[in-house]
Amino acid sequence: MTASSTKRESFDVRILRQAAPGEPSRWETFRIPYEPNLNVISVLQKIAAMARNAEGKETTPVAWDCNCLEEVCGACTMVINGRVRQSCSALVDRLLEEHEGEIELQPMTKFPVVRDLVVDRSRMFRALEKVKAWVPVDDYYDRGAGPRESQESQEERYPLSECMTCGCCVDACPQYSKVEVERRPNESIEEHQARQAEAEKSEFLGAAPISQAMLFNRHATGAMLADDRLNALSGPGGIQVCGNAQNCVAVCPKEIPLTTSIARAGRQTTVHAIKKIFDR
């Protein structure tokens, strides 16, 4: 679109590749013919189709995750030019303005790398289970409408409910550290996942699950599990680990007020802890 980009014929994409967990990582550069309005996904599609690096050498296609390509599914998160974001909404023209001539892609830094740009984010879903991020309805039969809700309450819950568990918030968090358990030979997928879950048991939950706990504590029926959620939030790896760097809210692609959720969680756990002392 800019004058310089119309003249550009190609650009380079440097990708941090890793064949499998435990393997060394290496950089590989690909040369992509320039066209306007590309995004990182279409670049990766082109790489898959040509399977040839910038030196013209044949190589395996780069593995990556994606699904909706509309920034609502949360699958295609990666570290692009040093910053974690969704690759579907990362536009090549903008990225080349950020960093002339080259785009740099890396897998997310806080999750075990599966291959190339694919990471295992199951820890985030397990965290949602820890904070019981659901409404505990009796059953799925017809019992009429749910609780009435003010517009104000809906407007507060809706943004929190847009969280797609993409992991940007925790990847940019200086308090969230990677936990990786290597798979043993002949270990089943399930056994390996169980060991991984055990290893991260006491590790930080991160912003997204904290915010989800606040979402459900705000709902009339959801609040019936509020104490359980606050126990989880004040347990190992809970809200106390937050260091208030506030990167989470800065990188959240959905602009979810994560730091407000964190402060609310701070308030609720404070009251909860004091109550626990006096109710003993």
Partner: peptide, 13 residues
């Protein structure tokens, strides 16, 4: 109604 009970943040009057 069921989705409402499950906590879907439907827009409100």
């Amino acid at each position: 109604d069921l989705m409402d009970r499950l906590g879907v943040p439907f827009n409100r009057t």
